[in-house]
Simulated assay, not measured.
Amino acid sequence: MDATNVSPIFDFVLNHYPNYLFWIFYVLNLIFGAIAFKLGFARKLPLLKTIFVYVMLAVGTYIITIFSIFQMPITESLIIISLVLAIYRFRLHRQRKRNNSYEKTPE
């Protein structure tokens, strides 16, 4: 068994699409996945757990990038998720700021 022919999916992706296209999708998916994680995860994690999460995110992003190459809307979905979470966090920040200003005003 040849080591380069491990999986037919990987073989198809690497042989039929330009190498730069796959890596462009990978970087875009990684960036928007990291943004979605940062905006969607409420708690601060310790440093080692954060590093572990980002390493697993990089591995998982490689796998979902294969689906992006096969015309599935992975990158588009990550962009929409990031936008929705950014809007939510912005509105939450404005609401908290407004509530704090109401509490500080003397009656």
Rank of each mutant, 00 (worst) to 15 (best):
N19F: 06
Q71R: 07
A58Y: 00
W23F: 15
F22Q: 12
L45S: 11
Q95P: 00
E76K: 07
I63S: 12
Y102T: 11
I87Q: 00
K97G: 02
G33R: 01
Y62P: 00
N99G: 03
N19A: 13
Y17Q: 12
F41P: 02
N29G: 03
K104Y: 03
T61K: 14
I31Y: 05
L85C: 09
F12H: 09
I66S: 12
G33M: 03
L85P: 08
K49H: 12
N19S: 14
F90W: 06
A36M: 06
N99W: 07
I81M: 05
N19H: 11
Y17D: 13
L57M: 02
F52P: 01
T61W: 14
R98T: 04
L14G: 05
F37L: 08
A36R: 07
E107T: 13
K44F: 04
P106F: 00
M56C: 06
L85G: 07
I80W: 05
P8C: 05
L30A: 08
V53Q: 06
V59W: 04
F90H: 11
M72T: 01
A36L: 03
I74V: 15
I74K: 03
I35E: 02
I63M: 14
P8G: 04
F10W: 14
M72R: 00
L57E: 01
P106M: 00
L14M: 09
Y102A: 14
L39W: 00
R43L: 12
T61N: 15
V6H: 13
I31H: 03
V53L: 04
I35W: 01
Y62A: 13
F10L: 15
I69P: 04
V84W: 00
I63P: 05
V27L: 15
F32A: 02
Y88D: 07
L78Y: 12
V27H: 02
S82F: 06
T61G: 09
V6T: 12
F25L: 15
N99R: 15
Q95K: 12
Y102W: 10
Y26N: 12
L30D: 01
F12D: 03
T61F: 11
N100P: 07
M1P: 07
N5L: 13
A58F: 01
T65F: 07
W23Y: 14
I87G: 07
E76W: 08
L45E: 14
V27S: 06
R89C: 02
I74T: 10
I80S: 00
F67P: 05
T50Q: 13
R98V: 04
P46Q: 11
H93G: 04
I69M: 15
H16T: 11
A36N: 10
K38S: 11
N19L: 03
E103M: 13
S7A: 06
A86H: 03
T65K: 05
P106D: 03
I31R: 06
Q71F: 08
E76D: 13
N100M: 15
L85Y: 01
F70R: 11
V13D: 05
N15I: 00
K49I: 06
A42N: 06
R89T: 08
E76M: 12
L92D: 14
A3L: 11
F37W: 09
F12K: 05
Q71K: 06
V84C: 09
P18V: 03
M56W: 08
F10I: 13
E103V: 05
G60E: 12
L47M: 13
